[in-house]
């Protein structure tokens, strides 16, 4: 176990992990430049809107990012920092990688029986397990895009509906899982997730009402997700 973690945290592992994370950063830079060039040519959106988009990306991510804190710390203790960085920093999520590490190591990760060759097996399963998404995205995205263009031409309404119905039903289902599966159906009924969801919803309703009355307060909309997260955290913790 000790030897295994020494290998898992060795300098070479850190170097490889950093190379992997660099991919995300490089992709961001490439897409940033493509988007900026496109905006310069078409003035599709204003620079204020660009700034707002950056702000919303930050506000919307900070809460959920800290939510994986505990799982990430547990994962670091089991498989070391570099693999955690390489897997959770890109492609996966902490929860998936935790399961993949357990399956790959035959359930030995975090136990004294976690031998170096089990670390190697866990790394294979985590990597190949995550590569499924990348392979499908690599091959299919272009075709899905073409298909959507064809559908758009045949009946533009379909795309109008799809781009609202699909995210709504996804958010509803994710919310259902938080509220029902992780709350109401627990052995000890827990209404805190339900309350957190309702408060989150209410904060958007309130922001919308304020903006409706006074359109000079539109900037509140940029912060809607921040209000939702903070109020949900407070109410959820009180009712816990």
């Amino acid at each position: 176990m000790k030897e295994t973690l020494q290998i898992a945290n060795s300098p070479m592992m850190w170097i490889l992990a950093l190379i992997i994370v660099t991919n995300v950063i490089v992709q961001s830079i490439i897409f940033y430049r493509l988007a900026i060039k496109h905006i310069r040519e078409t003035s599709l959106i204003s620079s204020t809107q660009v700034k707002k988009a950056f702000k919303i990306g930050f506000i919307g991510t900070i809460g959920p990012a800290f939510a994986v804190f505990a799982v990430a710390v547990a994962l670091i203790a089991q498989i070391g920092g570099p693999l955690t960085l390489a897997r959770v920093g890109i492609i996966g999520s902490a929860a998936f990688e935790m399961i993949a590490a357990q399956i790959g190591s035959g359930g030995t990760a975090g136990t004294p029986e976690f031998a170096p060759h089990m670390l190697s097996a866990a790394a294979w399963v985590m990597t190949l397990g995550g590569s499924g998404w990348l392979i499908v995205v690599f091959f299919a995205t272009k075709h899905i895009d073409k298909l959507q263009e064809t559908v758009k031409k045949a009946n533009p309404l379909t795309i109008t509906y799809m781009s609202v119905f699909a995210p709504f039903i996804i958010f509803f289902t994710l919310g259902y899982k938080e509220v029902v599966n992780k709350g109401i159906l627990m052995e000890e009924i827990n209404i805190a997730p339900l309350a957190a969801t309702i408060v989150g919803a209410l904060s958007v309703v309130i922001v919308n009402k304020i903006v409706e009355k006074d359109s000079s307060k539109k900037w509140l909309k940029d912060w809607a997700m921040g209000f939702a997260v903070i109020s949900a955290m407070v109410v959820g913790t009180i009712l816990r």
Binding site: G60, G63, P64, F66, A67, F69, A70, Y161, V164, F165, P167, F168, F171, F172, L174, G175, E178, V179, A192, P193, L194, A196, T197, I198, V199, G200, A201, L202, S203, V204, V205, N208, A224, M225, A228, V229, I230, S231, A232, M233, V234, V235, G236, T237, R240
Partner: peptide, 29 residues
């Protein structure tokens, strides 16, 4: 309590999203 309070960030966001997206959809749908 502070560490675990972050567990409620996601339900809060999802509640917000249901309103943001739901308000763009007609009631029957």
């Amino acid at each position: 309590a502070i560490i675990s309070s972050f567990n409620f960030a996601l339900p809060g966001i999802l509640g917000a999203m249901m309103i943001m997206m739901g308000s763009k959809i007609k009631v029957p749908n």
